[in-house]
Computed example of a mutant assay.
Amino acid sequence: MTQRKLYLGPLTDSRRWDMVTIRSDDVIVVTPPKSGTTWMQTIVALLLSGDPDIEPELSVKMPWVDIRIREMAEVAARLEAMPHRRSMKSHTPLDGLPLHDKAQYICVFRHPLDAHFSFRSHVRNIPMSWFDHWYPEDDPDGVTFRRFLDGGPEGFDTDAMPLVK
């Protein structure tokens, strides 16, 4: 695949992957939000370390590359400095990621309705009001659910989780 699709939203940016040099032994966990990402990252951490008591520190040791919260130069430098087999996380669909022939991509999916309602619950626990527009607490007309059913995966308007991801 030569041309990657752009996935860009207020929270994520697939172009951040341009600063990551993929190694042939990398493991990249690719999931839509609320579809088993942390669960799979923990399994990968256990498999790579061989230590059942490992403290995975997922956000540091297995960074979410797409998220804009951390400076990408710092994330890329931390990844580059890792001498061991690395693992990373992405919520970007595969057509937006750099694909390396020998790297391993683990894709996990969950029933879309379960993921949607889990995500709605998840954003209620985030102390940031900017999700309120996309996921209002009261939604008597079902706008949030309709957006989920009809939304495109590109994320240009939101980082909401549409069905087609």
Results as ranks from 00 to 15, higher is better:
residue 2 T to W: 00
residue 7 Y to F: 15
residue 8 L to I: 01
residue 9 G to R: 08
residue 10 P to D: 03
residue 15 R to N: 09
residue 15 R to P: 00
residue 16 R to I: 08
residue 16 R to Q: 02
residue 18 D to F: 01
residue 18 D to H: 15
residue 21 T to M: 11
residue 21 T to H: 12
residue 22 I to S: 03
residue 23 R to C: 09
residue 24 S to M: 03
residue 26 D to C: 02
residue 27 V to E: 02
residue 27 V to R: 02
residue 29 V to N: 10
residue 30 V to N: 13
residue 34 K to F: 06
residue 35 S to V: 08
residue 36 G to W: 07
residue 38 T to W: 03
residue 40 M to Q: 11
residue 41 Q to Y: 09
residue 42 T to C: 13
residue 44 V to K: 15
residue 47 L to I: 06
residue 47 L to Q: 09
residue 47 L to F: 08
residue 48 L to G: 10
residue 48 L to E: 04
residue 50 G to Q: 05
residue 50 G to K: 06
residue 51 D to Q: 10
residue 53 D to C: 10
residue 54 I to F: 06
residue 55 E to R: 14
residue 56 P to G: 03
residue 59 S to W: 00
residue 59 S to Q: 06
residue 60 V to F: 13
residue 61 K to Q: 14
residue 62 M to S: 12
residue 68 R to V: 07
residue 68 R to K: 14
residue 69 I to F: 11
residue 70 R to Q: 00
residue 71 E to W: 00
residue 73 A to P: 10
residue 75 V to C: 01
residue 75 V to I: 14
residue 76 A to E: 06
residue 76 A to N: 12
residue 77 A to S: 04
residue 77 A to Q: 14
residue 77 A to M: 01
residue 79 L to K: 04
residue 80 E to F: 06
residue 82 M to W: 07
residue 82 M to N: 14
residue 84 H to T: 14
residue 85 R to S: 13
residue 85 R to P: 02
residue 86 R to P: 09
residue 88 M to V: 09
residue 88 M to H: 05
residue 97 L to E: 01
residue 97 L to P: 03
residue 98 P to S: 11
residue 98 P to Q: 08
residue 103 A to L: 03
residue 104 Q to C: 08
residue 105 Y to V: 01
residue 106 I to D: 00
residue 107 C to K: 02
residue 107 C to E: 07
residue 111 H to E: 09
residue 114 D to P: 02
residue 114 D to H: 08
residue 115 A to C: 11
residue 118 S to Q: 12
residue 118 S to R: 06
residue 119 F to S: 02
residue 120 R to C: 13
residue 120 R to M: 06
residue 121 S to E: 12
residue 123 V to Y: 11
residue 125 N to H: 15
residue 126 I to E: 14
residue 127 P to F: 04
residue 127 P to S: 14
residue 128 M to G: 01
residue 129 S to F: 04
residue 129 S to D: 11
residue 131 F to M: 14
residue 131 F to P: 09
residue 133 H to M: 15
residue 136 P to M: 14
residue 140 P to W: 00
residue 140 P to F: 07
residue 140 P to C: 15
residue 141 D to R: 11
residue 142 G to Y: 08
residue 143 V to I: 12
residue 143 V to G: 08
residue 146 R to T: 12
residue 149 L to S: 03
residue 150 D to H: 12
residue 154 E to C: 10
residue 154 E to G: 08
residue 157 D to T: 09
residue 158 T to R: 07
residue 158 T to H: 08
residue 161 M to E: 05
residue 161 M to P: 00
residue 162 P to S: 04
residue 164 V to N: 05
residue 165 K to F: 00
